[in-house]
Design a protein around this nucleic acid. Sequence first.
DNA 1: GCCTGATTGCAACAAGGTTGCGAAAAATGC
DNA 2: GCATTTTTCGCAACCTTGTTGCAATCAGGC
Lengths: 156, 156
Amino acid sequence: MTAVKTDASDIAEASLRRTGARMTRPRIAVLAVLLAAERALTHTEVESRLPASLGVNRVTIYRVLEWLTEQGLAHKIAGDDRVWRFNAAEHAHRGPHAHFQCSDCGQVLCLDPVTSGPAVKLPAGYRQQRVELTVKGLCADCVPVRRKAGSHRHPH
Amino acid sequence: MTAVKTDASDIAEASLRRTGARMTRPRIAVLAVLLAAERALTHTEVESRLPASLGVNRVTIYRVLEWLTEQGLAHKIAGDDRVWRFNAAEHAHRGPHAHFQCSDCGQVLCLDPVTSGPAVKLPAGYRQQRVELTVKGLCADCVPVRRKAGSHRHPH
DNA sequence: GCCTGATTGCAACAAGGTTGCGAAAAATGC
DNA sequence: GCATTTTTCGCAACCTTGTTGCAATCAGGC
C-alpha cells in the first residue's frame, strides 16, 4: 500500500510536470495508481486503488483517465466486456502491440510488439488505419488447476 | 422490405429446424434479419429492422441473439464502442477471420479468413485460446470525399 | 495574497444490457 | 382437435458503464 505513495507518485508527478498542464491531486494520484499497476486497470479498479482519503470523485476519475490518454501518458484498451482499461504508457510499449484478454476474469495485459503485420485486404473504398491483435485465453490465475482440486475462481 | 419476408425467412426456418429446438416467431424473424443483412448488426439495428407488426420485445431480441450465438447460428462481435454486433454464421466464415471496424460510424464487417497466425508468446502459465484480428479504419461511407464537398456523415 | 481560467464535485441522465416472474405459446401425447 | 408439459416471451424494474451541465474550487501566474 506504500508503493503507490512513495515511488509511483514521484514518477507520476514528474511525468505530469513534463506536460506543462496543471498538476492536480487527482491527476497525480490516478497516474500513480496506473504506474504501480502490473496490468491494465478498469475505471472501477482505479477507483478502488485510489487512497480513499483523497475522496476523488467517480466522474473526475473518468475525466482524468481520458485526459491522461490524450496526453499520451496512458493507454486505453477495449476488451470485449464493454469496459475500458488503462495502463500507464510508460512500461506500455509505445508502438503497436498485441493485447491479451482472459476470457474468464477479463484481465488485460499488453504483450510484446508484434513483428509481422499480416496483410488483410479491405473492400474497395475502405481505408485502413491500424490493426489490433488480441489474444484470448486464460490467464495464470484462471487456468484450471490440475491435481489439486477446487481453489480460487474469478479473482477480479 | 420483402427480402426479409421471402427469402431469408425460409432459410432461417430451415436452419432453426436443424437445431431441433423450438421454432418461435421471434427466433425466425431475428435470424431472418441477420441473414438479410450485409454486415454485422447491433441489437438496436436488429430491433428496427424487425417487422413492427410482430411486436417482438426488446428483451426477447437480446435473448434470441444470445441463443443464436450459442447454437452457432450467429456470430457475436465486440467492437470498441462497447456494443455487441451479430451476423448470421452462414455467410460469416466459420473459421477464424479478421474483422473491420470503422472508427467513424462503428460499422463492423467480417473479412476474409486470415492466413498467417502471427505467433505471440504469452507469459508463463497463460493459455491461449484464439487470436482476434481487428482492422480499424474508415468504411467507404466515412472516407472523406474528395472534390465534392460535404455530404453524408454517420449513417448509423 | 489576489485573479482567472482550468478542474472538480455533484446530481442527473443515457445507452446497453440483465433479471425475476407470471402469462403465452411450442411440442408432445391422446 | 384438445389437454399437458415445458420452453419461451413480455413486462417492469434494475444494473453497470459512461456522460453532461453547472456551480464551486483550486493551480499557477502576477
